[in-house]
């Protein structure tokens, strides 16, 4: 009798969404051929902030690992760009995946330390690690010490000889990174691992007693987030062409991302996308207000946390049952019965 069931993995919204997504992707890919430079720069920034947000969301929203020290990996990635291009002659764009691999390796001993800490202590531990990274990189003379360094003209020219060519190359790299990050997170969440991570998100106690090795799942997610975050770090400083310890290991890399994920909706793929759009919409008009802008952002985040812990996307799915990235499995009766 149970043969009469089917398991559906897509929704109406996801089928419409994939068409919209495809159109948007084509528009974005072709943008350098018709768009203006300022918008292109803004889009690049949105891409890497969104990619960072997806990484943090996977780790905190699913794995329950609330790190406030992901700037350790952003900064590490940034420095790897300079180290690999200047001292090892690696092509600038290739430093992005290579930095990711280095970040994954570095995350192992870091995890060994911070995974001993629970709850708030884990968060504090990750922050301490980031501060240690900052102090450590400030000591390295060949990487500019405390005052930092710029990417040499020869390296910059190796990306593309013209300025427009460089802008396009960096733009496409950033677009590739954000699309790849979202795709990987989506397929990860749809897989068996996603089942485990979502269960951990909802109840660690129950997932463990239903056979999920929580520690292993969390460790893998942490390493994967380190890989992604470090790769994105290399990309970020490829757009900036200059690095210093305080810019590389700035805690704002993490606080911005937390704001985005919390406002948009933690534990969903759509949430960080919506959060990123809101963040940039608010930022442009409010940038003139200086520190008032930060106070406003902070207040908004606190209000959302109190009034709608599932974020704005949570409200939308609750009202309209919308899911553009269907990670669910729906059990349906077969029609022919």
């Amino acid at each position: 009798m149970t043969d009469s069931y089917n398991v559906l993995r897509s929704t109406r919204a996801s089928r419409i969404g994939s068409i919209i997504g495809l159109v948007l992707f084509i528009v974005l890919v072709s943008f350098p051929t018709w768009g203006d430079r300022a918008t292109m720069r803004l889009l690049v920034e949105m891409f890497y902030i969104l990619a960072l947000s997806q990484m943090w969301n996977l780790m905190a929203g699913y794995g329950g690992l609330v790190s406030v020290g992901q700037q350790a990996f952003v900064g590490l990635g940034g420095y790897m760009l300079f180290l690999l291009t200047i001292h090892l002659g690696v092509g600038a764009v290739w430093t992005v995946p290579l930095a990711g691999l280095i970040g994954a390796v570095v995350s192992l001993p870091v995890a060994f330390l911070v995974f001993r800490l629970r709850g708030h202590y884990f968060a504090i531990g990750t922050w301490v690690v980031a501060e240690v990274f900052l102090l450590g990189f400030a000591q390295i003379k060949t990487l500019g010490g405390g005052s930092g360094l710029s990417l040499p003209v020869s390296v910059v020219k190796s990306i593309a000889s013209s300025r427009a060519g460089r802008d396009s190359a960096i733009y496409w790299t950033a677009l590739f990174v954000v699309v790849a990050v979202i795709a990987i997170v989506y397929f990860l969440l749809r897989s068996r691992h996603g089942l485990a991570l979502t269960a951990i998100r909802d109840s660690e106690e129950a997932s463990n007693s239903l056979g999920v090795d929580n520690f292993r799942a969390k460790l893998l997610v942490y390493i994967f987030a380190a890989f992604g975050t470090t790769a994105i770090g290399a990309l970020i400083f490829l757009t900036k062409l200059r690095i210093s310890p305080s810019a590389a290991f700035d805690i704002n890399w993490t606080t911005t991302v937390i704001f985005i994920v919390v406002i948009g909706g933690i534990g969903t793929i759509e949430g960080p996308i919506l959060g990123t759009i809101i963040f940039f919409l608010l930022r442009e008009p409010l940038a003139d207000f200086g520190s008032w802008y930060l106070i406003l952002l902070g207040t908004t985040a606190v209000v959302v946390m109190l009034k709608a812990p599932q974020g704005i996307w949570g409200i939308i799915t609750h009202k309209f049952d919308l899911r553009f990235f269907p990670v669910q499995r729906r059990l349906e009766l077969k029609k022919d019965d």
Binding site: T198, D202, S203, S207, L210, G211, V212, Q328
Partner: peptide, 22 residues
């Protein structure tokens, strides 16, 4: 009860089957 609140009932069972049941 410790349900996985954000997952469907069917998915709650899948967690048990896919991991506990191997």
């Amino acid at each position: 009860p410790h349900p996985f609140g954000g997952m469907t009932v069917f998915e709650n069972l899948l967690v048990g089957a896919a991991f506990g049941g191997g």
